[in-house]
Write a protein that binds this DNA or RNA. Structure first.
Lengths: 147, 147
DNA sequence: TTGAAAATATTGAATATTCAACAATTGAAG
DNA sequence: CTTCAATTGTTGAATATTCAATATTTTCAA
């Protein structure tokens, strides 16, 4: 009798593990670059999302930057102290808070973006154009299929 | 004059972001399943790695399960309390500690594996056989190219 | 053989995250 | 209208993680 094929498979066969491993590595590299500006990856994400100039509610922002609400609240507190972003109460729904990027935030955001783009280019070089775009495509479709 | 093509790209264009997003989602699903046994994803990884029956040093284990050393030490402390694993000093190099899985750990590991395999199968169904294996292949090669 | 440097694991303090409870506002049913 | 449930964001306590320092053992050059 043959066992179920996956029962004793090494952990490296699991998609969940490969994703965690790849994410950890790429994130570590990005972190290293952003540390030049002393900013964690999450703040890069926040500034990038807000840099469309529009107001974004906390809930919307939490989804976009992959943070839980309380974690986001506290990170935004720090960024407000650093005058990178500011809160405005939503006049249409006073439960909501709209977040905006400040001028200082925009300046920092540009620097961070160029560091992030550096990384993307570095990946393109070592990993290849074809693989990168194919991987992005597959990741997007995995995310889609998970909703 | 045209701007560098990536300068204002949405965050969803970045590989680092897509990886984080996909990882978050898949990890969340796995977490949900493993919560049936009240076990965090990291403990599943630890038990899975140790279930080859061999002794693994803390450093080796930390790499394999994607945890920093101090985090692993503290998680192992908890698992030792739960008698899922145990420490043995490496006789060949007394700086090292070898971790082993206990009988109780093996029993739990089997249950966890089947939950994890359930998830893999669920992904295969909704995402497809072809996409899944291609994604795994690309992730492995990304990890390789990052070392 | 000795002594300095490297490797390994742990600890404690500082920091960050999460969980559950809360406050405020809106929506919607009666 | 009024009231009750749902939505949104924040807070404080509990938990977890990280950073820097430490202790122990091994390695290796002199």
């Amino acid at each position: 009798m043959a066992k179920s094929s996956k029962e004793n498979s090494p952990i490296t066969d699991h998609l969940a593990y490969l994703l965690a491993q790849a994410n950890r590595e790429i994130n570590r590299q990005l972190e290293l670059r952003l540390s030049k500006e002393g900013v964690p990856v999450e703040q890069w994400r926040i500034l990038k999302v807000l840099s469309d100039g529009n107001g974004h509610s906390m809930g919307e922002l939490a989804d976009a930057v992959l943070l839980n609400h309380p974690t986001l609240t506290k990170m935004i507190d720090r960024m407000v102290s650093d005058t990178l972003v500011y809160r405005v109460q939503d006049p249409n729904d006073r439960r909501k808070v709209l977040m905006f990027i400040s001028d200082r935030g925009k300046v920092l955001s540009k620097k961070l973006n160029s560091l992030a783009v550096d990384q993307e280019e570095h990946i393109l070089e070592s990993y290849g154009d074809k693989s990168t775009s194919e991987l992005k495509r597959l990741l997007e479709s995995l995310i889609d299929s998970s909703n």
